[in-house]
Write a protein that binds this DNA or RNA. Structure first.
Length: 494
RNA sequence: GCCGCGUUCGUCUAGGGGCCUAGGACACCGCCCUUUCACGGCGGCGACACGGGUUCAAAUCCCGUACGCGGUACCA
């Protein structure tokens, strides 16, 4: 039997979850579920300085909002916990020591200033990218250059130190990326990565390798920004005597302005970068998921709208594209409309009720409410559009759209026409939309007038607007009495 | 600078030597439906970055150039 697939989403709690992070989580989830495996959440909080208090709960809430259930995580204990790196410190130390023992890593005592000094010295002498590496390490203060007894003395006296990876001078590191194929790096270009920081915590590089191994992660699916450090991780797996997991580096999501989708780069274009914003704006989670899935992947046929289950069913890494994709906000909107339209009136009504009440639109009956939803549905992009548009179903218009007034309300002819039709409405025993529509047509036919002569000003009187759902549906819904009142009001105002 | 990755309509993408006069979706435009605005239907506009090869044949393979993105921290 093949090894069960285990993947992880390993965000750092340095802020609200980024929309690109959600896509990474999604691809991990889809891959895991497709293979009947486990999706694990691991919090990579090894950087004390960048730690943000509410970030972790935002991350868990956001991925749950999207419907991506993880079976193990900080709030869902499993066999491989703890799932916060800050709670695993002791583990990393052990492996760092093992590396040192085997001469794959060493202690370094250089201060930040000393490293800076080395860099600027080398830069001056013509080295464009000075690194702490196989060459420079020999002129720095570390356990490779200092006498053994001094190293021991410094360690014993509590001198601050870091542990660095001893990257070989010239070696080729080659690995297979599930999305890009073979990728190779020369170790010359790598620096002696810090593995343990002076605060005693590991860096991402050590921690993710140790945890992925210990947590039996089979596939590392992460953003392309990690591709460059992947060779260091491969080296680490080798030095620790472990088999590296399969790797897949996802193309990045970019801003229409170019560059990565950062707050600065995208929000001025109206594209929120935090998942939280989409939650707040009440996007349909499924729409966001569907959109994100298609940003860098497609099923290979012409399907566009797919449920999470369908995505799971169709997902595979070999259909993930290699190039970065620009966030197409219009398409997200379109997806949201698709999902909105597929929802029942009752479910939308339930969600939107509190906002209606808050806006002074009290829903007299379930039927009334659902009809309002039905009439607005095809015109809504976001669920918040319902409240924004529904005012006239509940209250007489406070004002009348000026353009439409200028265009359709002719002082010499309109009022008389409206008054005449209003009488027909009032005497109509059948107040259904269908019947009213019929009445209007025969009324106009008798007069030899086009519908616009009556329809537009009447709409204006009833809704205050120049466009909207079927006028007779609106009139039938608000009722005979209210219709009469609004016509009267319009006649007095306009 | 160096290292790595990438490059098909404005955008998301299909395409893995002949099926491509390059397909779909969003956006845009037009027509139809229609009392308006939408929805929906139909149609249009619109792309293989450039230059060399390889081949009977290249969007598809190879090389180079350009451009874009990422990395180059005691950040992830």
């Amino acid at each position: 039997m093949a090894t069960p697939v285990r993947v992880r989403f390993a965000p750092s709690p340095t802020g609200m979850l980024h929309i690109g992070g959600l896509r990474t989580a999604l691809y991990n989830y889809l891959f895991a579920k497709h293979h009947g495996g486990e999706f694990v959440l691991r919090i990579e909080d090894t950087d004390q300085n960048r730690y943000v208090e509410d970030a972790e709960s935002d991350i868990t809430k956001s991925i749950q909002w999207a419907g991506l259930d993880y079976s193990e995580g900080p709030d869902r204990p499993g066999a491989f916990g703890p799932y916060r790196q800050s709670e695993r410190s002791a583990i990393y130390k052990q492996y760092a020591d093992q590396l040192i023992e085997n001469d794959y890593a060493y202690f370094a005592f250089d201060t930040t200033e000393e490293i800076e000094e080395m860099r600027s010295r080398l830069e001056k002498s013509g080295n464009p990218s000075p690194k702490y590496d196989a060459i420079t390490r020999m002129s720095m203060k570390n356990s490779l250059t200092l006498p053994k007894d001094e190293v021991e003395r410094r360690l014993a006296s509590g001198d601050p130190y870091v542990i660095r990876l001893k990257v070989p001078r010239r070696e080729t590191v080659r690995f297979f990326d599930e999305i890009r194929g073979f990728v190779s790096f020369e170790t010359q270009g790598l620096d002696d990565q810090v593995l343990m920081k002076s605060d005693g915590l590991p860096t991402y590089h050590l921690a993710n390798v140790v945890d992925d191994h210990l947590m039996e992660i089979t596939h590392v699916i992460r953003g392309e920004e990690w591709l460059s450090s992947a060779p260091k991780h491969i080296l680490l797996y080798n030095y620790l005597g472990w088999e590296p997991p399969k790797m897949a580096h996802l193309p990045l999501i970019m801003s229409p302005a170019g560059g990565k989708l950062s707050k600065r780069n995208a929000e001025s274009l109206g594209i929120p970068v935090n998942v939280r914003d989409y939650v707040t704006k009440q996007y349909e989670p499924q729409a966001v998921v569907n959109f994100l899935a298609f940003l860098g992947w497609n099923p290979g046929d012409n399907r566009e709208v797919m449920s999470l289950d369908e995505l799971v069913e169709s997902f595979s890494l070999d259909r993930v594209v290699k190039s970065g994709s620009i966030f197409n906000f219009n398409k997200l909107t379109w997806y949201n409309e698709q999902y909105l339209r597929s929802r029942s009136e009752a479910s939308i009504l339930e969600q939107v009720k509190p906002d209606f009440e808050a806006a002074g639109c009290s829903i007299s009956s379930q039927e009334f409410g659902e009809t309002v939803i039905r009439l607005i549905k095809d015109r809504a992009s976001l669920i918040t559009d319902f409240v924004a548009e529904a005012g006239y179903f509940f209250n007489a218009p406070e004002s009348y759209d000026e353009k439409t007034v200028a265009k359709a309300w002719k002082a010499d002819s309109t009022p008389a026409l409206i008054i005449e039709f209003a009488e027909i409405l009032q005497s109509s025993a059948d107040f259904s939309a269908e019947h009213l529509k019929h009445e209007a047509h025969s009324f106009l036919e008798a007069k030899g007038l086009g519908f616009g002569k009556l329809g537009l000003p009447l709409r204006l009187a009833i809704t205050g607007k120049g466009a909207g759902p079927d006028l007779f549906e609106v009139i039938a819904l608000i009722g005979k009495e209210e219709t009469a009142k609004r016509i009267q009001k319009a006649l007095e105002t306009l």
